[in-house]
Simulated assay, not measured.
Amino acid sequence: MCFGRRGLIIIIIIVLSICGMLGFIVTVGAVTHAVTVDMHREVFCSVAVIGVLVYICAQLGIVGLIRESNSVMWFFVASMFVMCLVSLFICITGIMPYRVEEDSKVVVENAWKELLKGKPHNMQAIEVKYACCGKVGPQDYTENNIPESTSCFKNLQKEGGEKYQKGCLKEHSKEFGSLLLIFEAFYVSMIIFCILSLLISGFLLVQAY
């Protein structure tokens, strides 16, 4: 394989390695940041696994280049082909059907029901994370004759503290929607680059061998 083609494949493999690790990091960040992902944790975990596998496939390509092994390089291309198919499948069946408003409503509603049963932990966690109070606002506590939680106040201080006026349904949906949009954009970009890398690598290998 000539230096130009070899250099191009090396660049592709390096970028694939970065994409794989970033895919894993971004997914873990999404899982730890948003409560809503508990409803679709298997999808996010699958994306994290895909990121790791893309990174491993990239290292396989490096091994193939170092050893100048035709079989290893073709195995690398075949592995990337499988990764592309699996990634597309996850994107179409798991990520694209995601309904932010509906899922956010389920999460907040369930947390509120638990609060009414004397288990306020999840609702308080949502109120602190999204700087909100109640489902639609502080009036939810008044209507249900429940004292407002300290999580409805900035810095968790009732006395002299600023009370959050926005409801958690709206705030949770808005913030998680923005997070999901960033995640989707990154994931789709990674899939597109993997497909382009697959096509370019396969073409260069065909030309070389």
Rank of each mutant, 00 (worst) to 15 (best):
G7S: 13
L8D: 06
I11R: 09
I14G: 12
I14R: 02
L16D: 07
S17K: 12
L22G: 13
F24W: 13
I25D: 03
V28F: 04
G29F: 03
G29T: 04
A30T: 07
V31K: 14
H33I: 05
H33Q: 08
T36A: 10
T36E: 09
D38R: 15
V43N: 11
C45Q: 15
S46N: 14
V49N: 01
A58G: 15
A58K: 00
Q59H: 11
L60T: 10
G61F: 00
I66V: 12
S69P: 01
S71A: 07
M73Q: 02
M73T: 10
F76Q: 05
A78P: 03
V82H: 01
M83Q: 11
C84Y: 14
F89Y: 14
C91M: 07
I92Q: 09
T93K: 11
I95E: 01
M96S: 08
M96L: 13
P97K: 02
P97G: 01
Y98R: 06
D103P: 06
S104G: 05
V106T: 08
V106G: 02
V107T: 08
V107K: 00
V107Q: 02
E109W: 04
A111E: 02
W112I: 01
W112V: 00
E114K: 15
A125V: 12
V128C: 05
Y130E: 01
A131G: 10
A131C: 09
A131I: 04
G134T: 02
G137E: 00
Q139V: 02
Q139G: 09
D140H: 03
T142G: 07
T142Y: 10
N144V: 04
I146T: 12
I146S: 09
I146M: 15
S149N: 12
T150R: 15
S151K: 01
N155Q: 15
N155T: 06
K158Y: 02
G161M: 00
E162M: 02
K163M: 07
Y164F: 07
Q165C: 08
K166N: 03
F176I: 12
G177R: 00
S178M: 05
S178T: 10
L179T: 06
L180T: 07
F183R: 04
A185D: 06
A185S: 12
M190N: 12
M190T: 14
F193A: 09
C194I: 10
I195C: 10
I195K: 06
S197A: 15
L205V: 10
Q207R: 14
Q207I: 10
